[in-house]
Structure formats: structure tokens, C-alpha cells
């Protein structure tokens, strides 16, 4: 079974963002530490090991890429997710080439960040046991097979992605905005009409309920949905 509690280091100089990311990730039993500059990050990384690092590229005392060089030099295998205001393709390729696992451009939704962290971390551990378990739901990640109480449930690709997304953000209210961006990409201009999301969620919920799964998906007013923990 995949470890659910992660130890995360957040390297981000914008205080507001740092605090929000920390509080969002902390609620779930994860251990989050944060620092606002390069030197602080190097200090922490020299003394401790983390499961995942969230790395801002533009830091007051240097480029975040130095962290990647540092990790490589010290043979550390932390999963690294770059969060950057720059979305230039150069940055993206540069980051991924020297050891970052994923790249997220600001602004992003916290739910998206959390799903990405979960995904990056899952990819990182390849110890053969790639089954994600949430109560009665078991997801075989390499085979993309979902089972409820060991009975397989057939989901479409979108429903499967959505289920993973919900589980990564369990217990959190996720805005429709964030769901739409996750499922359909932020380049597709939805012009804030998210009605069509409802159909997919309704279908997913129905399939899970039919398989005698507890009713986890909860609609929160007009704003979004919550997967009850």
C-alpha cells in the first residue's frame, strides 16, 4: 500500500502562498516544512530527508535550479515539483532535464498542486506495490483498475482521473474551477461555465454507489465538491 503521509519541503518566497500551501497539505497528516530562500533550503536539505520538495524558481538569493544541482550532487532522491511564475518552455525543459519531476505554472489551484504531488510521489516509488487504497476503494495504478470491496468498477478515463484527483484531495472542498482545469486543461477556455462537469461527477458517483461504495462525493453549494475523508 502506498504511504499516505508525506514529508514535504516547501521552498517559496511569497509568504501568503507558502502559508496556504503549508496549511492545505498539513491537514492530511502530512508533515510540511517551509523556507523562503535558497540558503535556508540548502540548510534543511543537508540535515533532513523529504519525500517531496515544492520548489519556486525565482528566489530572492538565487535560482531554484541550484536546489536541483544540489540534490543531484548529494545523490538525494526527493521528488521535486517546480512551481514557477515563469511558464516559458525553456524553464520547463530545463527543470525537467536536471531532475525535476513535474512543473506547475502559477497561478494554480491548491487541489491541483496536491494531486500533482501525489502523482509525482506515486511515480517515484516503484516498489511493485502500486495499489492506492482508500477505505473500501482500491486502485491498481499501473493497470488503471478500480475495485470497490474487491469488485471491479468500470470507469471511463475521465471518471478514473477524477477519482484519483478526489482521493488526492480527500476532505477538501474543491472548486469547480479547479476540477475543470484539472480535467480539461487550462488552455481550454471554459468561460466559467462548468455545468458539464456535473454530468461526469454524477456518473462517477452513481457507479461507485452501485458498487456499494459509501457516498463520498458531496456537492458544496454552487462552489464545488468534496470527497469526504
Amino acid at each position: 500500500m502506498i504511504k499516505n503521509q508525506l514529508k514535504i519541503l516547501i521552498i517559496e518566497d511569497e509568504q501568503g502562498l507558502r502559508e496556504n500551501i503549508t496549511s492545505y497539505f498539513n491537514g492530511d497528516g502530512n508533515i510540511c516544512e517551509s523556507c523562503s530562500d535558497l540558503s535556508g533550503a540548502i540548510d534543511k536539505l543537508s540535515s533532513y530527508n523529504y519525500d517531496c520538495i515544492l520548489l519556486d524558481i525565482g528566489l530572492p538569493d538565487g535560482e531554484g535550479f541550484e536546489i536541483l544541482d544540489f540534490l543531484k550532487k548529494k545523490m538525494k532522491d526527493e521528488a521535486v515539483l517546480i512551481i514557477s511564475a515563469r511558464n516559458s518552455l525553456d524553464d520547463k525543459i530545463k527543470g525537467l532535464n536536471i531532475g525535476a519531476d513535474d512543473y506547475l505554472t502559477k497561478p494554480f489551484h491548491l487541489a491541483e498542486l496536491k494531486a500533482r504531488v501525489a502523482s509525482v510521489f506515486r511515480r517515484k516509488i516503484t516498489n511493485g506495490n502500486n495499489v492506492l487504497i482508500f477505505n473500501e476503494i482500491a486502485i491498481d495504478l499501473p493497470g488503471r483498475v478500480v475495485a470497490v470491496n474487491k469488485v471491479p468498477v468500470v470507469l471511463t478515463r475521465k471518471e478514473y482521473d477524477m477519482l484519483l484527483y478526489f482521493i488526492a484531495n480527500k476532505g477538501k472542498v474543491i472548486s469547480k474551477n479547479a476540477i475543470a482545469e484539472h480535467m480539461w486543461g487550462d488552455e481550454m477556455d471554459m468561460h466559467n461555465n462548468f455545468d458539464f462537469i456535473y454530468t461526469h461527477i454524477k456518473n462517477l458517483r452513481k457507479k461507485l454507489l452501485d458498487a456499494r461504495c459509501a457516498d463520498y462525493i458531496q456537492s458544496i453549494y454552487g462552489i464545488g465538491y468534496k470527497f469526504k475523508a
Binding site: G16, I21, R86, T105, P107, A111, S175
Partner: peptide, 14 residues
């Protein structure tokens, strides 16, 4: 503008 936007989004998400 990206960073302030990220702050707004994360504050709303919170």
C-alpha cells in the same frame, strides 16, 4: 502578476 494571482487563488482555495 502571476504570483499575486497565485496568492489569490490559494487564498480562495483555502
Amino acid at each position: 502578476m502571476q504570483t499575486p494571482l497565485a496568492v489569490i487563488t490559494s487564498k480562495l482555495d483555502t
